[in-house]
Nucleic acid binder design. Structure first.
Lengths: 220, 220
DNA sequence: GGTAAAATCAGTATAAATACCGACAGGATT
DNA sequence: AATCCTGTCGGTATTTATACTGATTTTACC
């Protein structure tokens, strides 16, 4: 994929400029990698890739970003330009988020609280057609893999409708209001709430909100 | 405070190692500043400062960290070692968080989505006995200053007890449970809740949770 | 020593959420 | 054909939260 003469080109997408600048500084001494693009949101990143797909070999992206999330960005990239490798940079190590990333066909996933060395390891592995997942999240993947078809699901896979209801709950809507907005009965909303409580193992609406936040299921 | 011969020594506290490494990389070319200490939580940072107060001239710290928050760390530092400058690095630009920082006698406050240039400007200003607050948060400070004594207070200043109750609400406790934990009547908890709803302008408990998150009033 | 805010508690009433029960239609899967 | 999941509703009952009004004590501050 790359030799010493032609470094691997990177595109960094993160809404925190400090992270971008930090990574650029870290890699400034590296001859194997060169950052030749940056974006502060998913849509911007997508435009840059679409404008010149050959310019970017590895996409280093945050999960939660404005306009377009990292996972959505990843999906689009993998669909259109499967040659581009995607490495996620995330704050969260929750099972659901990791699972989302894997389903989006990510090549790697590292946490922001890891250091320079691990970043370089990840980039090396990924640019050589490998994958790299932080040590902290490997157990999550393992557990996920082995419990996938059990309904125990501490992670819970919510249906589309349930996610819709949850998003409105987080927006401070009452069941009545949600019913009106979705053109369904309040009773149906209650049923969805009950299922959400089960799947998220929450005790109350507050728990649902926490669940939504941790799993990136609501706009913030 | 410093000349070209003796660079300004920095201590960085952030639970995201990547931020620390990023800043170190950014400053590696700078002769004016030298990072000679790092910590991943507030307590660790405090230990390092207490161990050798002369080693650190500027403390660069995150707001939300495990064990001890950045604001608490700042308070202790300013109380014991007022010569140490404190620059906050934060994800949030909410009025309440900024106010907390200012009340803790911070010398500066910059957002993580700002870049290398602004970081250097901030460090220069602060190390020369000045202050530096990100452009984005200046309006917040201004507004805060002028609306301080009005009860309109879109930010709301919660009492210690109210914060205590709010923290438990976010932890999925019911009013009953909160009452038991704080050894007060459920009725009193209800009163606190009512005041919290007023001050936060929330419609329900969900709104309180959002408020707590946005203002960094609950552990996450 | 007065004033203001905070913290405490009570009563009453309504609104909202949760816990159960049961049901049925449609779609996908086996 | 049988099964499972999703989405859709209804009834009933209980628990929790919210909206009022009003009150006392403590604390802090001027």
């Amino acid at each position: 994929m790359s030799d010493l003469q032609t470094p691997v080109s990177l595109l960094i997408a993160d809404d925190h400029q400090m992270i971008i600048d930090g990574i650029k500084s870290m890699l400034s001494g590296e001859r194997h990698f060169v950052v030749n693009g940056e974006a502060n949101n998913g849509e911007d990143a997508w435009s840059r890739i679409a404008a010149d797909p050959g310019r970017c070999q590895v996409l280093l992206t945050d999960i939660s970003m404005p306009l377009m999330s990292g996972t959505e960005l990843c999906r689009k990239v993998k669909e259109q330009y499967p040659h581009i490798k995607v490495l996620f940079l995330s704050m969260y190590n929750s099972t659901a988020v990791v699972k989302e990333a894997v389903l989006a066909e990510a090549d790697g996933y590292i946490l922001k609280n890891t250091g320079k060395d691990e970043l370089l390891s990840a980039l090396h592995r990924i640019s050589q057609d490998g994958t790299y997942f932080s040590q902290e999240i490997v157990p999550l993947l393992y557990r996920q893999y082995h419990k996938e078809q059990q309904q125990s699901a501490e992670t819970a896979q919510l249906s589309a409708r349930e996610k819709e209801v949850l998003a409105l709950i987080v927006k401070e809507c009452t069941s009545e209001e949600i019913a009106q907005k979705l053109f369904i009965s309040k009773k149906t909303v209650d049923t969805h709430r009950a299922h959400l409580l089960e799947k998220s193992k929450a005790r109350s609406t507050v728990g649902l909100v926490r669940f939504a936040i941790k799993n990136g299921l609501a706009e913030w």
